[in-house]
Amino acid sequence: MIELTLQTLSFLAAALLVIIGMAGMLYLDNLIKKLIAFTLLSDGVNLALVSLGYVQGGIVPILEPGASLSDFPNEAALIFGPGIVLTNIVIGVSTTAILAALIVILYKRYGTLKASKVLKGEHE
């Protein structure tokens, strides 16, 4: 039996988000819904990266007034994950913008948001 720590739970939530996003991208027809599912998937990956730095009984990696200098390096959460997530968010913003722009163009061209019709080249 796996011990249910906070890290385990957040990994579980991250895997759920990833799988919901993947299911939405694969099985849903609407392009906007596919875009939303894509952002959910990227959120799941972000959550997994953030929970990598979890330290049992730890504190935020910000020196607060009255913090102990000797305990801080051991107690503070690892900043590796959030640092990578910052990159990931920036890339997510630009990817979402490009995808939304492409959806607008597809809508102007085909008059529909259904991926099945767009793939077959049908007009609404």
Binding site: G53, P61, L63, L69, P73, A76, L78, G83
Partner: peptide
């Protein structure tokens, strides 16, 4: 990142 945690008191409180 633990190295940066150790350096925190000389640099900036926000480690990130």
């Amino acid at each position: 990142s633990e190295e940066y945690n150790k350096l925190a008191y000389r640099v900036a409180p926000n480690n990130l």
